[in-house]
Structure formats: C-alpha cells, structure tokens
C-alpha cells in the first residue's frame, strides 16, 4: 500500500472516531475561518457548508431600528422552530460579517440576547440551524456612529 493511501485511511478513521463522540460532550472548535471571512456568503459557507437559508416567520430578531452607538447594539433572537442546533448572527456590512455563533444544546431554549458592534448601517441576519435545514430572518439596523473604531 502506498503511504499516501495509508495516511488517507488513517484520516478517515480519525474523523469517524470524532463523529462517534456525542455532540453534547464536544463543543465545536472556534470556527476561525468563518469568523475571518470578509464576505457574508463565505462566512456562511465556512460554517454551514452553504450560503442559502429559508426565510422564516418563526424567528423573531429583536434589534433597534436606529442604533446611535454602533459599538453597543443590543440584539435578541427567539424562535419557535423545534430542535434548534445553533443560532448565528451575520452583519452583512461589518468588516467580518459573522458576529457571534450560539451552539444550542438539548434542553436549552432558543432565545438568546447579546450586544454586538456594527461598523455601519447594515442588514442583520439571524440564521437558525435545525435538522430540517437553515432558516433565517433579517432586519435593517441604521447606525449613526460606527463601532469598529476603524
């Protein structure tokens, strides 16, 4: 057997072993590539494998219509979708669009809140992952003073 093939097989076995660990015991490694992506579609593809999501009324994205201070924009996301696995927040016009990513465990309710920075007026998108696919909702937030200090 050629060494290249042996190495490949080892890799496959290692992956299979990783997949066997129950999801609840293993947090995802910090997704550096997704957070480093400059285009929103690249960030989505890095973290979800696709940049497509289905718009859904079952997700409520709470965000101010006008944020006077882009350094502190309070947002909240709530959804009635079942079996939520994760909630991602994408700010399309930020220098790095993926802002924050919540990994939801069984028993944890899909309602989260946090404060994010926005560099300029932009759509803010909440992406909810369930076994049934990716669902999203978006809201435009107007920013008076940008909060990335560039």
């Amino acid at each position: 057997m050629r060494p290249g093939r042996r190495l490949f097989l080892k890799g496959v076995l290692a992956l299979a072993a990783l997949a066997a660990i129950p999801r609840a015991l293993l947090a995802m490694a910090w997704p550096a590539n997704a957070f480093g992506a400059i285009a929103a579609s690249d960030a989505m593809t890095e973290i979800y494998g696709t940049d497509q999501s289905t718009p859904s009324d079952a997700i409520t994205l709470g965000a101010p219509e006008i944020a006077e201070n882009g350094a502190v924009v309070p947002i909240s996301i709530e959804t009635t979708l079942a079996d939520v696995q994760s909630i991602g927040v994408i700010v399309d016009k930020n220098p790095r669009p993926l802002a924050v990513f919540f990994e939801i465990f069984p028993g944890t309710q899909a309602n989260v809140a946090c404060r994010i920075k926005m560099s300029e007026t932009s759509p803010v998108r909440a992406i909810v992952k369930t076994p049934g696919g990716l669902f999203s909702t978006e809201k435009e937030v107007k920013v008076t003073i940008g909060g990335c200090g560039g």
């Binding site: 995802m28 919540f102 990994e103 946090c114």
Partner: peptide, 25 residues
C-alpha cells in the same frame, strides 16, 4: 458538568460582553 450553551465570538461582540439565555432541567 453538562454543557447548556457554547458561544463563539468574533471581535464584533461588544466590549464587556453580555449574554442571556434560558435552559430547562
């Protein structure tokens, strides 16, 4: 010892980060 939430942050999370959520059980 049971994970209920993991949050991955970029630099776009505000200074002195605040997070809230609920869990059952």
């Amino acid at each position: 010892d049971k994970p209920v939430m993991v949050i991955d942050c970029s630099t776009a999370v505000s200074r002195d980060p605040f997070f809230s959520f609920n869990f059952t059980g």
